[in-house]
Nucleic acid binder design. Structure first.
Lengths: 243, 243
DNA sequence: GCAATTCAAATGTCAGACTTTTAATTGTCT
DNA sequence: AGACAATTAAAAGTCTGACATTTGAATTGC
């Protein structure tokens, strides 16, 4: 691992990149301890502060974890699904909010991906997943529910649907797509009528998943996707007219 | 923005989290300049080094960028698709390599997601996408191509397919799923026979996309998915028997 | 043999200095 | 007045050395 002191990039960025490459390439196995900060400083011929900045960069990506004390140090971290989820969600949310992604584009992506899960979920869903879906549907019907709570329950419902596919890689990929939509969905005011319709569609999806009918689940999702876009359009139009 | 000095977490982690929340919540718009390191140090009542470590964490996630010089400082960064792509790929690759994800699971996720794109790509693909797909198919047929180069071309082919859907959010989500598979695919030795078959299937996909026939594209993808799993199984079995 | 103590290694934090980069300002010459 | 050069100031980047805190291991004492 070498760095180029004449490069225009920060030393800490170069060092972080060098270590990252070593980890990603598999040269450093999980739980392996990195040299101490002082040793790294000597190896790269920089100060300890610079090494520390590099290590913090890696820690921010969950590539390493640090531990204080006598036998402490920086260790190659096993990237867990939970860590990957939250990073995915943060990134996806920012991507949508900062790049003026239209509601239609985000919605299309979300439902396209979700439809990919539906047949698998119909095959493999457990009673647990079904129970979660039913519980969320019930929650969505409660009077006095705020729009935010309704959306949160919507996310939980769809998470259960996705998780039903029993493929953690799919769940990880979908986490971002589903959750990142929530801020956009929160911009919509749900009337009693539209809630009723959405709940009915959710019921249809749950029924299809319960019956292990992938085709029906897919059809129900398409219907929900169409209704969501339609709803968003009318809400945005109404808002534009109000001005 | 406040931090708790009595918490057991690192000060730099707390400060990074506080600023991250401000950015994600939208309280700090894109391109807004953060206070200088010295000012932040005073605000949070910590040393400049600690602030710097916090800022490096945020920079590692592309949440901020820094600029030296008189009018420099740290600025809220517009998260670009390219940045999000590479983060996605790193994370997905590590997730697969560190969690003993089976080839079947990863493959299932990848093709499920890709099938979600196929109908959209059939509708919207441009001549550019088609040309890329054809060019990669041609490259795959060249004799003397290494397995790594073959896999790289495979990734490029599928990227073109996904990008053909014309939905940047979908492309972003799929980047991880497709590219993260490459190290796994690289473990496979492709015989002349299997390459021929894959190239033929790629041709079928390209034909369907060209004909804007979403159903045919989907069917061809399913066939490719099945053949890929079959191929991997026989390769792994052969390798196990060899020992 | 076990418990308390001490020790040492490592990360976390701080303070202060110096270096480099960059843009704005100022000064000077034509 | 305008163009070019020199100065200046602000900011990030780096370095040094110190001290604080944590934590496991070694040592000591009983």
């Amino acid at each position: 691992m070498k760095i180029d002191p004449t490069s225009d990039k920060d030393l800490s960025a170069q060092i972080a990149a060098a270590i990252r490459d070593a980890i990603v390439s598999g040269a450093m196995p999980v739980d392996e301890r990195l040299p101490s900060e002082a040793e790294l400083a000597e190896q790269f011929d920089v100060s300890r502060s610079t090494v520390r900045e590099a290590l913090k960069r890696l820690a921010a990506q969950s590539l390493i974890r640090t531990q204080r004390g006598a036998t402490g140090g920086a260790f190659v971290n096993r990237l867990r699904y939970a860590d990957a989820y939250s990073q995915q969600i943060t990134t996806s949310t920012l991507l949508l909010s900062m790049n003026a992604v239209s509601f239609e584009t985000a919605c299309e992506a979300r439902y396209a991906l979700e439809r990919a899960c539906a047949p698998l979920s119909a095959m493999r869903r457990t009673p647990d997943h079904l129970a979660t879906m039913r519980a969320e549907i019930h929650r969505q019907g409660q009077p006095g529910l705020t729009d935010e709570a309704f959306c949160a329950s919507d996310v939980a419902f769809h998470r259960a649907l996705v998780d039903g596919a029993g493929n953690p890689v799919l769940s990880y990929q979908l986490a971002g797509a589903v959750e990142a939509m929530q801020p956009l969905m929160n911009m919509i005011t749900f009337t009693a009528r539209s809630r009723e319709r959405i709940i009915a569609l959710h019921g249809g999806i749950a029924d299809a998943i319960e019956a292990q009918d992938g085709g029906a689940a897919d059809a129900a999702l398409v219907e929900l996707a169409e209704y969501t876009v339609e709803l968003a359009q009318s809400v945005f139009e109404a808002r534009a007219a109000q001005r």
